[in-house]
């Protein structure tokens, strides 16, 4: 078994102007998805990130403060799960509730430095 990270990238609900009802319906799906992984005992953790960004870049280490509205897409958070391979995780990622909003799941394997 390996560990993978599912990284969620896209737009924030509030930036898309979703209604309260729509937000709640989506939360329901998020809860259901989380519960499903929990019950399958593959969930190892996860975090949600706040939409504030401080970006530091360039030789001069220039700092810029941004919010989700200022960027095309933002990393909203991640789940850590245990799975056999990428295909299994892809299968799990089918339940991600926000593909229709244009949001994305990126699957990455956790590196184990073990020779």
């Amino acid at each position: 078994m390996k560990n993978f990270m599912m990284i969620f990238i896209g737009k924030e609900y509030t930036d898309l102007g979703l209604s309260q009802e729509e937000i709640q319906a989506r939360m329901e799906k998020w809860f259901a998805w989380g519960n499903k992984m929990e019950q399958a005992e593959i969930l190892r953790g996860g975090e949600a990130l706040t939409p504030q960004i401080r970006r530091i870049s360039g030789q001069n280490r220039t700092a810029t403060d941004l919010t989700s509205a200022d960027v095309k897409e933002i990393i909203g958070g991640f789940y850590l799960i245990e799975a056999k391979d990428f295909d299994t995780v892809q299968e799990i990622a089918q339940d991600f509730p926000d593909y229709d909003l244009g949001n994305t799941v990126e699957i990455r394997e956790i590196m184990v430095f073990d020779h």
Binding site: Q20, G34, G77
Partner: peptide, 23 residues
């Protein structure tokens, strides 16, 4: 939903991912 119906103050949800933090 009930907080909304009763027009009370509810935490604002910006993203479904926030359910991870609630969890």
């Amino acid at each position: 939903r009930r907080i909304q119906t009763e027009k009370k103050h509810a935490p604002e949800i910006k993203n479904g991912i926030e359910t991870i933090a609630i969890n």
